[in-house]
Design a protein around this nucleic acid. Structure first.
Lengths: 237, 237
DNA sequence: GCCTGTTTGTCAGCTACTGTCAAGATGGCG
DNA sequence: CGCCATCTTGACAGTAGCTGACAAACAGGC
């Protein structure tokens, strides 16, 4: 796993020295910096805003800025949820349909962030789809989330290690949600986010038959016209 | 659409002055630079290799390097296919199942690149999944490809403009293929790439029923517990 | 009111990347 | 063969993102 959602503090820092009070203060500072940054981005555009600008607006040195956010991009991507440990966020209960749980959980998270500050979510999301570098990191972060879920769910339902079905399903689910969020953002948040989410997932479920037909068609159309042998993988040193 | 797959030459440059000979020479230079770069990456690692190193190995100034590749990342991502205009690459014929055509086309492209130089594809792919920045750009490029296809297919089958079904299906297809390629790379190319591709798509088609059940479960579990109103979208200026 | 650990600013430095401009290579054409 | 127009290249200077190191300011607990 290359890296988690967003950042990763250098020190484990959990039951560690950092007091709970200091932690919350840190979060409040982050929120304030983010707010200033987003204001500047809206004013002058992302590229035209330098980190120095942001730091200045937030009344700190740029060096300090980087102590809060590992990169300029992260100012947009960051979220309260990135603060909590991953396990807490995506706890899958055994027994019940894990996929359904996942969907519900994602809905809850979106609903929560949305409800705390709709405009904030919209601004961040627009930037996440608009600015190429951020878009790339955003998609990466989303799709990388599949990894951790995967392990949990695989354990829960006892899927084999090398199964393709589960990762493919999760990836499909995630991309459906990404499509929904993209549309929400493109319509300036005028449509209901949760409704779009549900619709996208429903659309995915509905496209099942199409896909089955298509796979058959493709197979009939002469699957495996070329048969390359696997790479020799001649690494020894 | 933020940007195309990889780069974008400043000038239209199609039936333009640049002679066909110069164009091919340019491509050969790119291939040579890429080769040198990949060699260095394998030696010292991506981060430890500076652009100056690459330029030096390729017997050019770093300024010239950037005339060939817009960024260091692009050295890994670049491909002959990025050289041809998009239309040529993904021509969808009307009538036949467009999804099936798409699948076949992607298979062909992979097969082509693979067959020309298996090791090269494997090296590039490994870096594309391993180095965070490249991974992000890679996923972004892949998922962004959906856009152009989408328009074409929508026209071909006469899908409505605001349809969710088609984009969601395409995204699912693409992510299935990404999963397949990821697995191929993780196994050092020891498995057959095209076979993995087919398997992943088959797995996607097979997950249809799961998804349908899950959607029902999720819906029953109390879809829409919160009902946020759409954002006011109060932009006027 | 001191003592310890955290937070901050300054400074110096690296790397990716860009604009500019003049010098050099190239290819077409007479 | 040689010249001109055009494309390509290198040198130079500069910007922005980001990092390490260190010392000063700033907590909070006793």
């Amino acid at each position: 796993m290359p890296h988690q959602t967003i950042s990763e503090d250098p020190e484990p820092n959990s039951a560690n020295g950092t007091s709970d009070l200091r932690q919350r203060k840190r979060i409040r500072t982050k929120q304030m910096v983010q707010k200033e940054a987003l204001r500047l981005f809206a004013d002058k555009g992302y590229d035209q805003t330098t980190v120095d600008d942001i730091a200045h607006a937030a009344a700190m040195s740029s060096r300090t800025f980087f102590r809060y956010f590992p990169s300029k991009e992260d100012v947009v991507l960051w979220d309260e949820y990135d603060e909590r440990p991953m396990q807490e966020v995506l706890q899958i209960r055994p027994g019940e349909d894990p996929l359904a749980q996942l969907i519900m959980r994602v809905r809850e998270i979106f609903a929560d962030i949305y409800q705390k500050d709709p405009e904030l979510l919209l601004t961040r999301t627009k930037l996440s789809f608009t600015v190429p570098e951020i878009r790339a990191r955003f998609l990466n972060a989303q799709l990388t989330l599949i990894g951790p879920y995967l392990a949990q769910i695989a354990d829960a339902i006892g899927a084999p290690r090398d199964d393709l079905q589960l990762p493919v399903t999760l990836a499909a689910l995630y991309s459906a949600m990404i499509i929904a969020v993209e549309r929400w953002q493109r319509h300036d948040g005028r449509e209901d986010l949760l409704r779009l989410l549900d619709d996208a997932i429903a659309a995915l479920a509905a496209s099942a038959t199409d896909l089955r037909d298509t796979v058959l068609t493709a197979a009939a159309a002469g699957t495996r016209p070329t048969k390359p042998k696997a790479v020799a993988a001649k690494r020894k040193s």
